[in-house]
Amino acid sequence: MGDLVISLDSVSKIYRQGQKETLGLDAVTLHIQEKEFVVVRGPSGSGKTTLLVLIAGLLRPSQGVITVNQQNLERLNSQQKAAFRARNVGFVFQMFHLVPYLSVLENVLLGTGQRETEKTRSVNLLESLGLGEKLSSLPAELSAGEQQRTAVARALISNPKIILADEPTGNLDPVSAQTVLDHLDQFQKGGGTVILASHSDLADRYANRLVHLKQGRISEGLSVTADEEDRKGNPAGTPQS
């Protein structure tokens, strides 16, 4: 493992809608190092997505400090946060969230300056994800697995340090899910950090570490750390003391 890349200290998030308050995260402290593959587990509504969105700087915490890549996000304004995300973070969503009127290649290029080198790199990346024949297809013409691989390519194209993946396999068949997880695994092996939220155990065997969330809190005693050599070999969630 490398340097500390993500640090959350006593981070809480409260959603307010009129008089109603909902606790999204409750005093979460979490430190993630470079080249970690962290799987955040927990049932729906446990705060997994909130955690990812806070790390991406898309939401402000109600309390606590978040530092990503040695940058305290609270000190950045919204434009600086956008630039920070563009440089450091790639996002993969459960619902793919591709722009419907852009082709596969254009969706990948969306977050880039669309220079010729980026275009070539995008084509190569898409080919490596098995989408070489679909470069000019629209999202509606793709299968769910192809759409998610496009989303993964979009997250990877800007060479981010961190990939945040929110239920990336939630809508995929097992084969497609495996392909997507393999690519995230490759990214991690290439030096990146992956934080993947999931309510299923499918991704557990890729994880260096499992973090369990329940009602916005990290469940005591359920966080586990897996050694590199044990990854994929161990069943999900087996504690390693």
Binding site: A56, L58, S78, Q79, A82, A83, F84, R85, A86, R87, V89, F91, F93, H97, L98, V99, L110, G111, R154, S158
Partner: peptide, 16 residues
């Protein structure tokens, strides 16, 4: 709305 969310997530600024 979806596009707005996507563009924000990939790092496009509000003005863009």
């Amino acid at each position: 709305y979806e596009e707005i969310g996507i563009l924000r997530a990939i790092g496009r600024g509000s003005w863009s």
